[in-house]
Amino acid sequence: MIDIHTHILPGVDDGSIDLENSLIMLKQANEQGVTHLVLTPHSILNSRKFLSKEDLFLRFQKLVNAAKDIPIQLYLGSEIFYTDKVISKLDSGELQTFSDSKYLLIEFSMRNESDLDEILYNIRVKGFQPILAHPERYEYMTVEKLKQLKENALIQINSTSIEGFHGRKAKKKAFEFLKEGLVDFVSSDCHNSTTRTCSLKKSYEIVFNKFGEETARAIFENNQLIMIQEIDKYLDNSRK
């Protein structure tokens, strides 16, 4: 399994509170069969908690060193909350994409609808590949709207939505999106080691039983692997 949406980086957002807790969360992820994991702390411009890429990287390195014995390859990203200035900040390289590659995880307000289609298009034509975080949790999202958005974004839904953790409506939408073949990734969006853990196995079984092995493997692992391989290649080229 590969998890590309996690809040395990310690002490930066509403996710893991400290290093010890992060290590517990990583061990839990390992037990779930996770081999590669992207750390995606919330990144909200104009927030008191907003950290620069340099700050994030220092914390990332500390975690990587502490987690040496846990067999999970770690990558640094962020979950960017969209505001007006995001595109210009992406352009200037100030926001953390997945290992500074073109892939980035982006979320929008769950209640107030922006022109997502235009925003995601603008991000893509700037050379980035946006991954839309948990659209099943957005009140205004429908199958039709998501079909349009797929023209510019990859779609990630939460394993917890499939399990019903975020309520009946999010679960219903998650299944509708799965049924229509609109989902590219399922991720845990884990925040702690107790109530919102890195839980993937349970939702994998649900998807496996309902939609078949091919779909389950694709959205829990294979699609993520293709992206990770691209990121690895990008990192290798950057080092040369």
Partner: peptide, 14 residues
């Protein structure tokens, strides 16, 4: 092992 779903963004229709 099942066939991997291609990771591809559909080209803009227009």
């Amino acid at each position: 092992m099942g066939k991997a779903k291609k990771l591809k963004v559909k080209k803009r229709k227009n």
